[in-house]
């Protein structure tokens, strides 16, 4: 279980998150909804360690967790970015296998075999040797998911997973996220689309802009 206690974050005097408390059960899908500027993405960035919370605690299964700790041996939190942030100069396969090689020190054979498995799961096998610019939006997103999963995170965060896709792909993403639940991973999905949120969510968190 992931627990957030009294998380506060402000930028230049504007408080975005104010004493936020939250519990996400293992293997659950949490949808975070709310209007623009309410702090959905800030919350996600704090959980991912891209921003440091001003105060408050993260607790994972009873152990304190510092998402911003770069020296941590394992990656607890994976992220699928809104515009994916794939590495354009690497093939799909290299995008997925790079971090296990560099960070987990796996040898090339192991990391590539694992990456190929992941790509097969996500129906990307025939794209393995293509470059990101050759892919469709949906394919890019699945590569981003595969890349995050390759580090075997316990929690996977999505920032607006439907915003860069055709409306017709919305249901496909929802199915994919629901499907990943079977692997035992905890997922946190930030979205401004309440319908999408309800479709996938076990838990729903609504954030509202803080009025000064």
């Amino acid at each position: 279980m992931l627990k957030l206690e009294n998380i506060t974050k402000s930028f230049e005097g504007t408080t975005i998150l104010n004493n936020l408390n939250l519990e996400v059960k293992d293997n659950a899908i949490l949808s975070v909804v709310g209007p623009s500027g309410a702090g959905k993405t800030t919350l996600l960035r704090c959980i991912a360690g891209l921003e440091k919370a001003d105060s408050g605690k993260f607790i994972l299964n009873g152990e304190p967790l510092d998402p911003a700790d770069e020296s941590a041996k394992e990656r607890i939190v994976g992220v699928v970015f809104q515009d994916f942030n794939l590495f354009p100069h690497l093939t799909v396969l290299q995008n997925v296998s790079l971090a296990p090689e560099m960070v987990l020190k796996q040898d090339k054979k192991t990391s590539e075999a694992a990456a190929k498995d992941l790509l097969a799961q996500l129906e990307l096998s025939s794209q393995a040797n293509q470059y990101p610019f050759e892919l469709s939006g949906g394919q890019k997103q699945r590569v981003a998911i595969a890349r995050a999963l390759a580090m075997q995170p316990k929690i996977l965060c999505y920032d607006e997973p439907t915003s860069a896709l055709d409306p017709s792909l919305r249901d496909a993403v929802a199915d994919l996220i629901l499907d990943l639940k079977k692997t035992g991973i905890t997922q946190i999905v930030v979205t401004h689309d309440p319908e999408f949120a309800k479709k996938i969510a076990d838990q729903l968190l609504e954030v509202k802009p803080i009025n000064k």
Binding site: E70, R75, V77, F81, N85, L98, M102, V103, A148, M151
Partner: peptide, 13 residues
């Protein structure tokens, strides 16, 4: 882009 650095960072590079 900043996204490239962040993409690398969340992977632990």
């Amino acid at each position: 882009s900043k996204g490239q650095f962040e993409g690398a960072k969340v992977l632990g590079l």
